[in-house]
Amino acid sequence: MKMNDHKQQLFVCIRSICFHVFIWLLVCSNLSSAVLVPEAPLILDYHNGPVLSASPIKVFLLFYGSFSNSEKSAIRAFLASTSAPAASKNSPSVSKWWSITRGYVDSSGNGVAQQIALQRERTDNKYSLGKQLTKSNLTSLVLRSLKFFPTDPNAVYLVLTDKHVYVEGFCQDFCGQHFYTYPSVKTQGKALPYAWVGNSETQCPGFCAWPYAKPLYGPPAPPLVSPNGVGVDGLIITLAKVLAGAATNPFGNGYYQGDATVALEAAGACASSYGPGSYPGYPGDLLKDSKTEASYNVQGIQSYKFLVPWIWNPATLSCAGQP
């Protein structure tokens, strides 16, 4: 090999080393900048519409399908816990979690009501519209329920479907949603907020009952022990989310970010956040029952324990589980 060849190889080697050093310095510089520049806070814009401020927020509940007594009891207990005092000053509770919604104030200065009251309930265990429901079927169920429930635009008409029922978009796009009816003769000319949540136990627990089931997407992780049963606890997680959304954005012109049809709302803006240190695939640091090993983040009435998604706090512009 000639001397010139050695010099050329040495030059190529030095150039390669310099290039990689430059790239390393550039990466370090970007990382440093990312640390030094604070991330912009999340903002849910207010669109000048009302919130559910009349107290209590009345709930008219329709169980569609077959629900066990224990499932019904857990759901009733969760609703009652939203306005029940905490067991102790330092214990995380459903009512403290719900109190974050007080900061969602409308243009008249009214905040979200701090009491939720289950007024009446009915059960349709004969699947009167079948086990394959469209979104229009959900509206029909609400309108039909007005034969038994009063018409109240400050209430939430809640439809819960059992594990045998498939609703359009369920397990693919969402686990529950809230809507509102258009004014009509059946609604006495009023727009009525309503919501639907499904039990995902046999259809997609990894999607709608995570972290109490192995995740449907992403790296596998061992499921946590649920305090009340995988199906009903997954339902309650989504119920908490849609209730917060219905209270702060009942008619699509309240608090949300982004496109109104796929809006980020009070709890949806904090997706997968259930405790400190949460990140996608990890719910955060949760409490654990010493006897049952069940994981939870809030306590309710009658020693019930639940997992609820964190809510965006307008006072701090960040997600939180307790004020």
Rank of each mutant, 00 (worst) to 15 (best):
Q119S: 11
S93P: 03
S278W: 10
C13Q: 07
E265R: 08
W210M: 03
C171V: 10
D289M: 07
G169I: 14
F19M: 10
K186D: 13
L61Q: 02
S33V: 09
G275Y: 06
P153V: 06
Q302C: 09
N125W: 06
T82N: 05
P56V: 04
L160Q: 02
L31I: 14
P323L: 06
L138W: 02
A80W: 13
V37G: 04
P314T: 04
I43H: 05
V232P: 10
R102K: 11
L118N: 10
Y182C: 08
W310S: 00
G169E: 13
V21Q: 13
G284T: 09
V185N: 15
L10T: 09
N48H: 10
W312M: 14
Y274V: 13
P85M: 13
K135M: 06
S16P: 02
V37K: 08
K7W: 08
F149M: 03
K135P: 01
P215H: 07
Q9I: 14
C319L: 11
G258N: 14
V225W: 05
I14Q: 04
K305P: 03
L317A: 14
S145Y: 06
Q132G: 09
S81V: 07
Y279L: 10
L143F: 04
I236M: 03
G277I: 04
V21Y: 15
Q114T: 05
S272Y: 11
T151S: 11
L146G: 05
S226M: 06
V298S: 09
R15Y: 02
I237H: 00
L118V: 05
K291H: 06
W98V: 07
L287P: 01
S29N: 12
M3A: 08
I237G: 00
P50I: 02
N249Y: 00
V112W: 00
T101G: 01
D162K: 01
N30P: 05
L216M: 12
L286R: 01
T248M: 04
N253M: 05
S136H: 05
P309W: 00
S318C: 06
Q257L: 14
A320F: 06
Q132N: 14
I116Y: 00
S29M: 10
T123A: 12
H47P: 00
G109R: 14
L216Y: 06
Y194H: 04
V142G: 06
R76G: 07
K135T: 13
S278Q: 09
Y282G: 08
L216E: 15
N154F: 15
S83W: 03
E265M: 15
S95Y: 00
V159A: 02
G277V: 11
P222V: 13
L36G: 12
G103D: 09
A267F: 03
A40D: 13
G275W: 02
A195Y: 09
L52Q: 01
P183E: 13
Q8A: 09
